[in-house]
């Protein structure tokens, strides 16, 4: 995710940003608020607030933190305002300043899938297919046979896919380390 796209509010490029986060944020939100329609409204509102506002993000970490935080806060606010499920609210509000275990686990879960999708989507079609098959535990020969390509092609594509993802994660890792040094 190129952070400038989000900061510059380029409408065409925003779709990429929106698509990447929308499902993840909705899933996270629906763990707090059960009503589906409310979930989508809450997430929409967070995007609109960024679009209308002047928040500028330093990097993807800051963006993710902002998004999940806002969704969580707005979801809690929704629960409070609608006076539903006071027990559930109690549970979420009693969480310490640090993220609660539930909230943290939910964010990790969504970010694993979202980040993985984002990385895989950047691969060319054949390479993506071979990577997915291999991640599902298929052997090189099986993949070659099923796709009707040579074993060497499979090996090469797999190597390139892993290399790409490793490089991308390398970046990601470096940012994380910097953040916490």
């Amino acid at each position: 995710m190129n952070i400038e796209i989000v900061n510059h509010k380029d409408r065409r490029a925003w779709k990429e940003f929106f698509d990447s986060y929308y499902g993840a944020l909705c899933n996270h939100c629906s763990r707090i608020v059960p009503e589906r329609s409310a979930v989508e409204d809450i997430v929409q509102e967070v995007f609109i607030k960024i679009w209308d506002g002047n928040v500028v993000f330093e990097n993807e970490n800051a963006l993710s933190a902002y998004l999940y935080r806002s969704v969580t806060n707005n979801a809690l606010k929704y629960l409070r305002d609608t006076h539903v499920e006071e027990e559930r609210l109690q549970q979420w509000c009693e969480a310490e300043q640090d993220m609660s275990e539930d909230e943290f686990s939910s964010v990790v879960q969504e970010e694993v899938l979202r980040k993985l999708r984002e990385l895989i989507d950047q691969l060319p079609a054949e390479r993506r297919k071979i990577l997915l098959m291999s991640m599902e535990g298929m052997k090189g020969e099986e993949i070659a046979e099923q796709l009707g390509v040579s074993i060497n092609t499979v090996k090469q594509q797999k190597y390139r896919a892993y290399k790409f993802i490793k490089e991308q994660l390398g970046d990601y890792w470096a940012v994380a380390v910097l953040f916490f040094l």
Partner: peptide, 21 residues
């Protein structure tokens, strides 16, 4: 986003590396 001194990013990265073996 942190918990017990671990960030979401750090854990996500570890999970993905694990997933790729």
């Amino acid at each position: 986003m942190e918990r017990n001194g671990h960030s979401v990013t750090e854990i996500v990265h570890r999970v993905l590396r694990h997933l790729l073996g």
